[in-house]
Design a protein around this nucleic acid. Structure first.
Lengths: 195, 195
DNA sequence: GGACGATACGGACTGCGGTCCGATTACGTC
DNA sequence: GACGTAATCGGACCGCAGTCCGTATCGTCC
């Protein structure tokens, strides 16, 4: 999650073991029963661990979801930092923004339920996520580079539009097709970047 | 709330009395203690009413918040439908969109906590609100009239950017001034309406 | 004005997210 | 290998959102 990790103050062997057990159990339960039908007690029980352990390691339910997403997230982050254009460096800012928008949309869509959990478990959770800051900074820089007005605000707007709840609504309630949404959101990125 | 109410199947006298008592109690508690520190039990107790009554009449916590906002909401809705331009009819679509954006931002800002409650109490509550459909339809029509691509999606994007959580974040965490935000969001409306 | 059907009332109850703290276990040191 | 310390563990506990259903109240029709 944090690309600048730094000093690790050692982690006890049992702690590592428990964290893995919890993540494995959570992934399995989410897969077989659906995110909504899994309680934290369920996860703790399935992992053979007390609730206290769960909460000490992951903070809250959204933290657990974030931990599950960690791998996929860093993957996309790496592509943004050092992958081939237009996602990575080397393309015009506007093109990179559009590419990010579409890639992020696809990422959210592929894991809607877990992302939703990481964003909505506690009020305002979305804006406090570590990864959110990453996406936001990325967009800010690109909007600024593209010469858009108020790049900070526009970055927040773009990410607000790509909330898991919103994507889920488009896809499930409104029945939009992913390809159509991608096109629309790519166009949106262009509009936002333009004066 | 619903501008097309239609047939009212009669409301019993005690029901009316209780609804008023609940709304009054809720407003007072929210004002004196802050929305976050008021539970549904508190509201029920303060209103001298059972919890069952509360939930039958308002569905859930977000429903209670929506009921409290009703008056202010319909006020803005009337201005959109039959008020003077640029909020009401008579101005170019783009100008009306910008005016709505700024007015809605001001409305959300003025009641952040209650609006947040109405949007986030249950997952996806925001998109199911009756008033949300109104705002969305209004924006859809104006985006279409302005010739913007994907007017439906753009309407959702605009409203997603004006979530109570987002506005609160801009105003409180980031310390943005309302006037600056209004200007930025007005510009945003123009960008979204342009090709 | 009395009786009956429909509607609303209310508080006990459930399940869940999150906290707390005494017991337990791992790790560095001598 | 034994000891002290610091971190981890785990499950009892709390407050809250939301449900359920027996009971009380209202409106109406005779």
């Amino acid at each position: 999650m944090d690309l600048l990790a730094g000093d690790a103050p050692k982690e006890r062997a049992d702690a590592v073991r428990n964290r893995r057990k919890v993540l494995a159990a959570a992934a399995e339960l989410f897969a077989e029963r659906g995110v909504a039908r899994v309680s934290m007690d369920d996860v703790a029980a399935a992992a053979g661990v007390g609730k206290g352990t769960l909460y000490r390691r992951f903070g809250d339910k959204s933290g657990l979801a974030a931990a599950l997403l960690d791998e996929r997230e860093t993957q996309l982050q790496q592509q943004l930092l050092s992958g081939p254009p237009p996602l990575g460096p080397g393309a015009p800012a506007v093109e990179r923004l559009a590419a990010f928008t579409e890639a992020y949309l696809a990422y959210v869509d592929a894991h809607v339920d877990v992302v939703a959990l990481s964003q909505t478990a506690s009020p305002g959770a979305r804006l406090r996520t570590g990864s959110h800051r990453f996406w936001r900074l990325h967009c800010r820089i690109l909007f600024a580079e593209a010469g858009a007005p108020d790049p900070d605000v526009r970055a927040d707007v773009l990410l607000a539009a790509l909330t898991a709840e919103q994507v889920r609504h488009w896809r499930h309630d409104e029945g939009h097709r992913l390809a159509d949404l991608r096109r629309a959101m790519g166009g949106l990125a262009h509009s936002l970047a333009a004066g």
